[in-house]
Design a protein around this nucleic acid. Structure first.
Lengths: 213, 213
DNA sequence: TGAAAAATTGGGGTCGTTGCAAAATTTCAG
DNA sequence: CTGAAATTTTGCAACGACCCCAATTTTTCA
């Protein structure tokens, strides 16, 4: 059973509104497009837009669900004998090496970045996402290491690991906006990641090592 | 001569509006206070408020001018033989040890933090400030080390140093909001700073050492 | 003292966002 | 197949931040 035609239609409508909105944003910028225009272009009322999306920014970031816990997932999936930081570095390198769209290495990603760059509201959203990523990662580290509630280390370690993540993404964003080709950026970022790893202390690189299975 | 009564009056008006606004914000929260209310309470028109402050948030952060370049100033003022990171750690420890209001160690600072915490627009502003701090610090490190324009290190080092700064401030904010006494928080944060320094690699701790005078 | 410069104001308007109640649509029991 | 119930969509009105512009008041200085 398809669990209702209603549900399907709702998801459809939601997706359609988001698509139309994203299209307009990429074409004319975030601030230049009004919610009323989006509604009209999607053949719904403004209220319907707000029924699905709590704010205008959510129309843009709809695709990026499940990004906030990516770091935490990587940490949870680390190998035996591997630390949290090294797991993240490994996964990140793997994505970069594969020129994966998941890390922004794709033709046309520069358009996305440019739209974000020009809209303070969207940049603000990215910071929120970063914060969320940090909080989830901290909680995960706390669980995985069994650290006490007043242990400051999970917080600090999450900060360091998020910094790695952020540095990589900022670099990718900058190069892509500068008009470089994904493959080029991939190679360049891989050497940057060596620099980044060099700046991490042994304490960070050896935190939360997974014990023998 | 006093360079004009006009200038004086302008500064006075500006200060007064900001004071009235801050008072209202601390009393009732950022979002609950309307710009129209502020204008009325300050005996000016709404347009005058916007003449002095580009946005509502600027009314709250008016005091924090010159915060964005504090890290850069500390780095520029480092001793002979001292690195950028160590200079920041030293100055920061000095402020924390002195229970300085400049780092939020003062009675009533919890009110500030709480207002910020509850208003997304204000949190967003803090992130902007952090970003500005980073950019200024990066530029300073580039100058001070004479690094090439495509050298990634100043960017990364600025990231690490800003992380230190941010970790300290977040900790202070959290403890103050929790209702702790400034002196207590000071002691506690000093030991946290030892943990933080422990997480920095030698590369970071020895970057941009000032040569002999 | 009077004209130029600058500050303040009021009015009107746009846009994001919310609340509410009416209207259209979908579901499902009988 | 039908009608009532549940749910979605919509229109309308409103609030608040913010902007533009022209009128007006205040300050400056020749």
């Amino acid at each position: 059973m398809a669990e209702g035609l209603r549900e399907r239609k709702k998801r459809q409508t939601r997706q359609y509104i988001s698509d139309v909105a994203t299209g307009l944003f990429l074409e004319r910028g975030f601030e230049a497009v009004t919610v009323a225009e989006i509604a009209e272009a999607a053949n719904v009322s403004v209220n319907t837009v707000y029924n699905y999306f709590p704010a205008k920014e959510d129309l843009f970031f709809d695709r990026s669900a499940g990004v906030a816990d990516r770091l935490a997932r990587w940490v949870r999936g680390r190998d035996v004998g591997e630390s949290a930081a090294r797991a993240v570095l490994r996964e990140l390198r793997s994505e970069v090496e594969a020129v994966s769209p998941r890390v922004g290495l794709m033709a046309g990603y520069d358009r996305f970045m440019r739209v974000i760059h020009e809209a303070p509201a969207l940049r603000s959203r990215l910071w929120s996402l970063q914060q969320e990523t940090h909080d989830i990662l901290e909680a995960t580290l706390r669980e995985e290491t069994g650290a006490a509630a007043d242990d400051p280390l999970p917080d600090l370690m999450a900060g360091q690991i998020c910094w790695v993540h952020q540095a990589v993404f900022v670099a990718i964003g900058r190069e892509m906006v500068a008009g470089r080709k994904p493959a080029e950026v991939s190679r360049e970022v891989l050497v940057l990641m060596d620099d980044i790893e060099d700046l991490l202390s042994e304490k960070v690189l050896n935190y939360a090592v997974r014990g023998a299975a």
